[in-house]
Write a protein that binds this DNA or RNA. Structure first.
Length: 376
DNA sequence: AAAGCGTGGCC
DNA sequence: TGGCCAAGCTT
């Protein structure tokens, strides 16, 4: 007989209009008692190292806290200061970044470190405008670093804050059109005192309480002031304009072994998809039915007796699905020495910057060559 | 300014 | 299981 929905019998309490200062104060009080320990976060009452804040913020772009944790620790251990990172080889940075995705971030990370170590004497700019000039730092990250590392008043607007503001003020206009409106609303609440803590608090609220599905309104410090909760539409906000469907693209990857048991890899172009990363050579990825080995063979990295491995490698990027067939061959004699790319012993593949989709290709090829691997 | 750009977890 | 979502930036 109990219902999980309350609105009909017990209408939600109407929202009370709360002053910005009241909202900021109640959120900071909530933060003080719910503060999460994160690897890049300073102890209460202290400001974090700008290098740590910047590194974590770049890694956290479109990436979850759980995923970032180990990468952050590994980067910090290997490159303890921004000068160390600036002095690193780009290839080493890409390798360490492999698996995190959005690889342009790694290239910009390296560029940014070099700018800071070079033109800025090893110190990050301490203003939003200054930070905004650096590669890989956009509106959100500039505000986050200015607030968290330098305790400057800055309005952070990430996915969390967009959701929190859309609900608090019941903004029904869909994103991304409503973004500027949400930014203004967020700005009206941002306090002059403890802006760094406030920035982390409002994002924490979105990450742990005002979550996308089944928001925990009962635990929310802004419960009384929330217009969407009062109207019973919190979970439906923020609205978003529908995204285009993802097309499926198909291609062929070429797994080529030489007599020494090494596989041919090559570096992708510096810009675009998986820019600068290492790949198993593959032909074009096009939106047409799976190509025949004969047709795809034209794009093979060497003449050889290619055989098609059973099965498919599937992977989904942000904007398309990919289905990759894998062709395998061995080359003998000396002819393989002319092939374009790098020959890597199969047990040394982890020394290279292979993105996840390419690790899937490797696993597929190795699995097919070993009877215990699954396909036989 | 709309589109391109990774990946893993969740239900 | 397929779509949604995650501390967005660049061109």
């Amino acid at each position: 007989m109990t219902s999980t929905k309350e609105p009909s019998l017990f209408p939600a309490a109407p929202a009370r209009t709360l002053e910005p200062a009241v909202l900021a104060r109640s959120l900071l009080a909530w933060y003080d008692s719910h503060r999460r320990v994160l690897p890049w976060r300073a102890p209460a009452g202290r400001t974090a190292d700008p290098y740590h804040v910047w590194l974590s913020e770049i890694m956290l772009q479109q990436t979850t806290v759980v995923t970032v944790g180990p990468y952050f620790e590994a980067f910090l251990k290997r490159w303890p200061t921004v000068a160390d990172l600036a002095a690193a080889d780009l290839d080493a940075v890409l390798h360490a970044w492999a698996g995190l995705g959005y690889y342009a971030r790694a290239r910009n990370l390296h560029k940014c470190a070099q700018a800071v170590a070079g033109s800025h004497g090893g110190h990050f700019p301490d203003t939003e405008e200054g930070l905004r000039q650096l590669p890989g730092i956009g509106a959100y990250t500039a505000a986050a670093v200015a607030a968290i590392a330098f305790d400057r008043r800055a309005t952070v607007l990430d996915g969390n804050v967009e959701r929190v503001m859309a609900r608090l003020f019941a903004v029904e206009e869909p994103l991304p059109g409503s973004k500027e409106k949400l930014r203004v609303l967020a700005d009206t609440i941002t306090p002059d005192r403890r802006p760094g803590d406030y920035a982390q608090a409002v994002m924490d609220l979105g990450a742990t309480v005002c979550v996308p599905r089944k928001p925990r309104c009962g635990q929310c410090p802004w419960h009384d002031g929330c217009a969407a909760r009062a109207a019973g539409i919190a979970e439906t906000l923020p609205r978003k304009t529908p995204k285009a469907d993802k097309p499926t693209r198909r291609g062929m990857a070429f797994w080529l072994l030489n007599p020494e048991g090494a596989v041919l890899l090559r570096r992708r172009p510096e810009s675009g998809l998986l820019g600068g990363m290492i790949e198993v050579p593959s032909g074009d990825w096009l939106e047409r039915p799976a190509q025949s080995l004969a047709a795809a063979g034209i794009q093979a990295p060497a003449a050889a007796k290619w055989r098609l491995l059973p099965g498919l490698v599937r992977h989904t990027f942000t904007h398309f699905h990919l289905e990759l067939q894998v062709a395998a061959a061995r080359v003998g004699g000396d002819s393989w020495k002319a092939a374009e790319g790098i020959w890597v012993p199969v047990d040394r593949l982890s020394d290279h910057a292979l993105p996840t989709v390419m690790m899937k290709v490797v696993r597929h090829a190795l699995g097919a060559s070993e009877p215990s691997g699954g396909v036989f």
